[in-house]
Design a protein around this nucleic acid. Sequence first.
DNA 1: GTCTATAAATGGATAGAC
DNA 2: GTCTATCCATTTATAGAC
Lengths: 215, 215
Amino acid sequence: MVSVALKAPIETPPKRSFRAQMHLAREDAIVSAVNRLLAEKGFDAMTVDEVAAEVGIAKASLYKHFPSKEDLAAAAMVRVMDRARAFLDKLHDAPAGTRPIDQLKAVARWTMEVQLAGEMPSLPSENSTLRTALTTNKAYVDGLMDVSDRLGAWITASQADGSLNPGLPPIAVLYTLFARACDPVLGFLKGSGQYTNEQIIDLVLSTCFDGLQSR
Amino acid sequence: MVSVALKAPIETPPKRSFRAQMHLAREDAIVSAVNRLLAEKGFDAMTVDEVAAEVGIAKASLYKHFPSKEDLAAAAMVRVMDRARAFLDKLHDAPAGTRPIDQLKAVARWTMEVQLAGEMPSLPSENSTLRTALTTNKAYVDGLMDVSDRLGAWITASQADGSLNPGLPPIAVLYTLFARACDPVLGFLKGSGQYTNEQIIDLVLSTCFDGLQSR
DNA sequence: GTCTATAAATGGATAGAC
DNA sequence: GTCTATCCATTTATAGAC
């Protein structure tokens, strides 16, 4: 045993790393499937059997990675939140002089693109077991806080420079932007078959920032 | 048997009417419970047991009135559609000279009031059994058509008089108004505990028609 | 038409072999 | 960690007495 361990010491670390990579890759595939199903049918209608079938592993194996259906969904929510933060990181590298309101529009556009791509997990209404699982998930809550803070800075900046309506409470603006991520209008217009994704996003972005009334 | 039937002929019609009234009242109570639960937790999370418990009758009795859970939900959707049509009837009695855009605002306001009152049943995402049940329900589809037509008339009229942005496709405006019925921003703001229902509705109505940007 | 009791199926979660 | 097989609670729906 000892001699074997001494025989291949340089093999061991790569092997562990490889296994760990496989492990992460598998979990990533699981989270991707959950993310897709969550976007397609929501938490209640999604079944763990479906997730297992889509990933191509047994249901029991899923539970070796995630202890419950709620944790499964929470992992998907955390990941989309991380994607959002990564996008915000990119936006911060925008050329100096970029108006904060344009940053907000870019964020809204991104969330709608994600939704149209079928990658935006939909949150359950309220009073759900998932809801409590999320509020006790540090990674999710921290991510949500981070995103809110960054958007909040742009909101107050836009109101200061006069481009965003200063009469609106910043929190109302924040919630309005968040709500674009699950706006059913995108799906409605998509279902009409009359518009491209680009046109749909431009339309909703326009009604969101310019309003329905003429300017 | 015959003599009995002849004995109380004037009693029979009132008795049938009374029974029919009781029947309708019972069904109305059922639909009310379904409506409330549908608004609170959605179709998937709502159980027929809950409905029976809330109404105070046995589950089997429910199935004597409605053949399936989908029909239960469809009845609730039809009723809220009928309520909407009744409200539209009232709006048509508005004083001559009322601007069509103000009619549209009144409709949006009404849908948000219904949602804040916890009486707006939430539709399932897509690909649901309820979805197909609704599309094959004549009462629902007809009601939806009627509402769409009436709103459509006001939309084109508002675009004609220049108050509504003429660059927007009428169908996009229609969907945007429909979407206010399930806008999560209302619940978010309500949950913040900082605003009254009146203030919340004014805020969302403002962002919907005036947009987020300054005017 | 209302009830109690139960069927039939589904879905979340686990046991235990490998 | 993956599998098969299973447990157990829940849920939709029905049977059959009254």
